[in-house]
Simulated scan of single mutants.
Amino acid sequence: MSEPIAAVVARAADLTARGLPHQAVALLRPALAANPLHAEGWCQLAAAHLDADEPDPALDAAKRALVLDGDHAWAQRLTSLALTELGRHTEALVAARECVRRRPDDWRCRVVLAEALAADAAGLPDAAREAREATRLAPTEARAYQVLGDAALRLGDWGAAERAYRTALRLDPDAADVRANLATVRRRRGGAPVTAPPADLLGAARALVWPALSRLAALLVTGCLVLTLAALPRPTPLLGWFAAALVAACLAVVARLLLGARGGVRRALLGLPRHRPRVAVVVVAFGLALVVLSGWSVALLLGAGTTQPLVLALLCALLGGAVVVLGGGR
């Protein structure tokens, strides 16, 4: 009489945990051939293949588990990990989000989602947030703190990275990769400042700044055009209040952008114009438009009746808006 499939899966899990994934695969293959509807067995096979650095068969096994009745969150998690290993990051992110949707309180799903988000520099802030949620759900799991430290390291948030890595080492003192990353954080924290932010930080900052610049372009171009038409044939002091409201709305967009960024991303945002010429042109053009609008607003309230500054503000807004539209966030 053959061994029950549940016992085989348990033995395979033990082999994988002991660092013998190939033996686990050899054990599971014939058992699953005889019991092809055992979802947990397919998940365990996928996990063994992942530990053996075999993402292709791992993905096949995880997909088999997805069509069976079983722990679909586990299957989605394994699917995301295999897709990440294969470089298919968009699909990995979809699988990771589905895993979290099914098990929002499972820290392992949050970790997988954080890793999938971190594949793109623009997703690093969200990756750090998901990893932080994983540490909240599982405060005794070193892996959750390691992923949080990795995201914070790439964001340039040295303080958060060091705290996360130190906690991970306290929970798992034998984690050599965590110890190496902690040493890297301490070197960067205590070393001389770099002349340019890392590429990851610049990418994350650019992904945040371009939508804000698009909103500013819409506000300034539309607002200046409406004010120009309303100022004919002669502006009234009431238009000064509208101009002031337009300036306040633009400053609110800028404030929201800066307050929404964290750590190294905020520093990269402030330094982005020095490293991205298109951003510099837009910032200068919109800055001039806001300064001119502010001065014109005050002048109107004091009794002036000129529209020339408003025309200059409109031209600056059009220049910055054209760069935003033509640049397309690239």
Rank of each mutant, 00 (worst) to 15 (best):
R266M: 11
W107F: 11
V282A: 05
V194M: 15
T236V: 14
T167K: 02
G191N: 15
R154E: 09
A313I: 01
F286A: 00
P309M: 10
V112Q: 09
L50T: 00
V94Q: 01
H275P: 04
R163V: 15
M1K: 14
L238M: 13
L314R: 00
P235H: 08
A249W: 12
A261W: 05
S2L: 13
R102C: 07
A13R: 10
A138P: 01
A116P: 04
A152F: 06
V265F: 00
A212K: 02
V247I: 05
A58G: 07
R29D: 03
H89Y: 11
A218V: 06
A121T: 02
P198G: 13
D105R: 09
L232Y: 10
L45E: 01
A39H: 11
A144D: 06
A114S: 13
A255Q: 15
L15G: 03
V100E: 04
A58F: 01
L257N: 07
R103D: 09
A205R: 02
V323M: 08
P273N: 12
A268D: 02
V8I: 14
L153R: 00
V194D: 15
A248P: 03
S297A: 11
L302D: 15
V265Y: 01
R256W: 15
G263D: 13
R179G: 12
L68K: 08
S297E: 02
A92Y: 02
Q44E: 06
A96P: 00
R215V: 04
G263C: 15
P198T: 14
A313Q: 02
L310Q: 06
G70D: 07
A249E: 14
A168G: 14
A245K: 14
R101H: 14
G190C: 11
P57G: 12
R330A: 10
A151Y: 01
P237S: 12
R132N: 07
D106K: 13
L258P: 11
A95W: 02
V94A: 08
R132V: 07
P273G: 09
T307V: 14
K63P: 00
I5W: 07
R215Q: 03
P233V: 09
A212L: 06
L148K: 03
E85P: 08
P173R: 12
A39W: 06
G271R: 12
A26E: 01
P235T: 06
R267W: 08
W158G: 08
G329K: 04
R170D: 07
R266V: 06
D60K: 03
V111A: 10
G271C: 12
G328N: 03
A116Y: 01
N181I: 09
L246V: 11
E162Y: 14
L153I: 06
A114E: 04
A164W: 05
L153C: 10
E130S: 06
M1D: 14
R102S: 10
D60L: 04
A92S: 15
E54W: 05
A285Y: 01
N35I: 08
V298M: 13
Q23P: 00
L290Q: 00
R97P: 03
V325F: 08
G123D: 08
T307P: 09
L227V: 06
A128H: 05
R274N: 11
A34L: 13
G191P: 07
P139V: 13
P197Y: 03
T307M: 11
E115G: 07
L251A: 06
L319N: 05
Y145L: 05
